[in-house]
Design a protein around this nucleic acid. Sequence first.
RNA 1: GGGCCGUUGGCGCAGGGGUAGCGCGCUUCCUUGACACGGAAGAGGUCACUGGUUCAAAUCCAGUACGGCCCACCA
Length: 887
Amino acid sequence: MSQHQYPSHQRPTVPERASLDGLEGKWDRAWSAQGTYVFKLGTAREDVFSIDTPPPTVSGSLHVGHVFSYTHTDIIARFQRMCGKEVFYPMGWDDNGLPTERRVQNYYGVRCEPSLPYDPDFTPPLEGGKGKNATSQQVPVSRQSFVELCEKLSTEDEKQFEAAWRHLGLSIDWTQTYQTIDHHSRATSQLAFLRNLARGEAYQRLAPTLWDVTFRTAVAQAELVDRDQTGAYHRIGFRLTDGQPAADTDTDTGAGQRVYIETTRPELLPACVALVAHPSDERYQDLFGKHVEVPLFGTEVPVVPHRLATPDKGSGIAMVCTFGDVTDVIWWREMHLPTRAILGWDGRILPEPPMGVDSDRGQAAYKELAGLTVYSAQKRVTEMLRESGDMEGEPKPITHPVKFFEKGEKPLEIIPTRQWYLSNGGTDQELRARLLERGNELTWYPDFMRVRYQNWVEGLTSDWLISRQRFFGVPFPVWYPVDQFGHPIHDRPILPREDQLPVDPASDTPDGYKPEQRGKPGGFIGDPDVMDTWATSSLTPQIATHWRDDPDLYESTFPMDLRPQAQDIIRTWLFSAVVRADLEQHSLPFHNAAISGFILDPDRKKMSKSKGNVVTPMALLDQHGSDAVRYWAASARLGTDAAFEPGQMKVGRRLAIKILNASKFALSFLAASGSGAALTLDPADVTEPLDSAMLAALETVIETATQALANYDHTRALEATESFFWTFCDDYIELVKSRAHGAAGPQAAASAQTALGLALSVLLRLFAPFQPFATEEVWSWWHDDSIHRQPWPVPAELRAGSSAPGDPRILAVAGAVLGALRKAKSEAKMSMRTEITAATVAVPADLTAPAVAAKADVMAAGRTAELTLAASDTEAVELIFAELTQP
RNA sequence: GGGCCGUUGGCGCAGGGGUAGCGCGCUUCCUUGACACGGAAGAGGUCACUGGUUCAAAUCCAGUACGGCCCACCA
């Protein structure tokens, strides 16, 4: 920016009437035709500003929150573009994952069945199906067909999103788009995975896994939410079986001493592998090392000490099951307890009892539960405990937090399964430290959001589970050899070459095999799983910049400059992107993160579809106009939740209209005067003190706005610009009106006209990121090219050479004196056109000279024939006396 | 249980050691040739509470209350 350009101007052609109506369509078409926002390939990295736009879920609906946060990003994009950066502003569509899977199922009446071969001529049974259709009615289709249908449907959805974004005035480069399920994204995702695998960052493990029984898939830590659930403590007695004389504490039965535990999950009794208490818990010292018998099922389990047992929870001694919760997993792992899994993938009790439930009585009891859901099993077990007398008292109802998949409706279970993991610092302390350092390296707007990242990284308990037992998504690019018994050999994966990507192992055949060997002994089998949707979304910087296949574009755009996103996905999208870039590029994926808040409805609740308080963005844009809606969005700071407020939109609309009208007026002088098409606005022509004062004040506004926008503080920039603009309209324009018309001679008129032109040129550019339509409309009256590719204003363009700046106090005090004169008329309930024959206004002593400098303009604007400016020792300008005459 | 934000006129917000600011709304007035989708002038607040630091606290510190969000091992 060393060689800063000033815009050149033409003699304006001002319309009779100015209106906001239809500007969105008009300018969207013009920008599209002119390629105003198209990224220039081959730009050097230092001249590029690249943005990792959040890909909206196209199967979801567009909502006001999108408008809000995407506007914040666009303001920065427009500012950077005007500052001379070539802005890389692509658009992605997220059509990967469960929401799309469900939408495609319902819309086309199909379901994905990866084992089917691809049929290129497939036509879906439905088109435009709404609501749910039963699984039984859905026609199974191959994964490739499903992906094709998804792409087709997404294309329809994308059109609506694109139309809305264009209407809103987002300066996106529509030639740079991607879909998270498209060929390029799948290839990128698989390529990154293969690299992770080669470096040992991705690995498979058979381990207890958080499992959603509805979707029948594993889920990751990042997808968990706690929800309060009602449950009940069941107090259950376990009988000591060894080394203990018949207890006198349990005279009822006369049997061995009983140990009471309290559990909310009695149905897991057959999965019990131990009882655990805190090592220092005096009550249980004698029991450590001894064994007890599990009621009903007869399994013998040890009583063991562990630091994670909480003495004041329940009875202080807990039963360890495989697996009731994540603490069970820790106990099981650390104390090398056996595994007695009793839950299947569908969340029902497995048909066969686990090892250890050997007695006839135990097997009979288990048979009662086999095939039941956990809910029914719990009821049955409770009945059985009641009958056998092993339960003391009745269950005590409680409310407690339970882990759920964020999209799920039933509590998660923990089931041992084989899964793919990716290192994310959950187990590797060195990596964790490095990722924490990345969080420090990243610049956060606002800064306090960094803490959420830190909290999350510090709280990780395991690596990132990236495999999902779903059908739709990016498949793992992996096959396995099949041994002579027909079993896959998991530790000898067969991988594709990078140039073969993307592959679908369910339909593609690995090199060296024939398709008919699929699933056969001695043949091969594809990995059945797909990747977590975040495993692909975490790569949006690499996808958008074409890391995989366009080194030139990648070099000039990666790492990206800006990641704008919502605060709720710091732990998922942002963190996972940092992980991937750290592992692959050894850098941050982006330098700055701008975090937008949520939209709250008037009741201060987060807006959401389920509450029915969502306003559709298009209706909003139509009603208020895009510049108005953008104004509302722009008036909320990053990281701060904002109220949905139509009032702010009205203010924004008023501002846009004012920009049109004030410009029309100011430019009318320049249209009328002089000759020739070119218009020269030379600051040297600004000779009147009031005019220089106004320009001096504007210089400060430029500085404030520029600095604010460079720091992603759009609200401050808007506030400074807007506040100046209203003074400019209400005071300055009124003050110079008659002089600009020539009342004080040609030179004084030229001074006002030039100052109006210079100020307008700057103000329009300052407003351009916020109000792209109104400013572009006005700009078109005196320019051929778009305002959005103009140089951002600098103070120097308002001053001739090395001349001293004007004194901004002149404008301030002139406005105050004019206000005093207006007050006289207002209090007399008279029109502003009323003549004042004589008036005296008290002016603070140090402001008398500045006031005198603008006296002629003040008298003209106030229609005052005789004005006395009396020096006073008060701090404010005050009307002392005025004599009014009716016109 | 831990953490992060916030609490300023009826509403939405800014400010941040030295007489409280903006916008909406409200009141009164003005159909003035840029704008009635306008303009002018007003009324309205002991800046959540309690202590402390200071010559001086809405502002800094500590604590409390309330609201929101994030995280946390479901016995």
